[in-house]
């Protein structure tokens, strides 16, 4: 197999950083590694001629979502927390599960995925082309996602709002220390 070097490097970095996300003890390190993973994935998008998505990926994931994560970490002051490590049994179970899923999905693609014919079209990953599709065929879903977003925002604000009665909070604390 003769693979292009940039792809190999990118893939290697992607997997490495993803593994670090999973294994890192510190949540902050995980977040940073995840941001790095997103960067590499964006790079993959560029390789795949999906320029618009590459940018959006950076903006949305790396820029917005991961910042949210960082904010929460800081808000809860969790950077120092060492979570209890699960037993070895769990590690084995998780490995086996994840491994078998890997095996299964690979096998599935082996069976069904080979039939895809390569038929690249120039410029579908550009803003112009995507925007055209998005605002014609996918107009209604697009509007609906807007409503979804609004709902999520309202929900998040409502959930995150501090309770008015501090006494209630304290009783909850005593119940669930």
């Amino acid at each position: 197999m003769n693979l292009p070097i940039p792809f190999l490097i990118l893939s290697f970095l992607t997997i490495l950083s993803a593994l670090y996300v999973v294994t890192s003890k510190s949540p902050v390190h995980s977040v940073l590694a995840l941001i790095f993973t997103f960067f590499t994935i964006s790079a993959h998008y560029v390789l795949l001629n999906a320029q618009f998505l590459a940018v959006v990926n950076l903006i949305v994931y790396a820029g917005a979502i991961m910042v949210l994560f960082l904010f929460v970490l800081m808000l809860l002051n969790l950077s120092k927390e060492i979570e209890p490590i699960k037993s070895n049994a769990w590690a084995i179970a998780a490995t086996i599960s994840a491994g078998s899923i890997l095996l299964m999905i690979t096998a599935a693609f082996q069976v069904f995925g080979e039939a895809v014919a390569k038929n690249p079209v120039e410029g579908i990953g550009l803003v112009k082309a995507l925007g055209n599709v998005l605002f014609t065929r996918f107009l209604v879903p697009f509007e609906l996602t807007g409503i979804l977003f609004l709902a999520a925002m309202v929900g998040a604000v409502l959930l995150g709002k501090r309770e008015k009665k501090p006494t209630e909070l304290s009783t909850n604390e005593t119940i669930n220390p």
Partner: peptide, 29 residues
């Protein structure tokens, strides 16, 4: 999407990002 020359796949990615963002927001809340 790129292989098949069909932009629908990328649109879905777009939507997934939207959902992921919403999910992250609510989940974190």
């Amino acid at each position: 999407s790129s292989y098949m020359g069909d932009s629908d796949g990328q649109i879905f990615v777009f939507f997934i990002m939207v959902v992921a963002a919403a999910e992250a927001a609510v989940g974190l809340a």
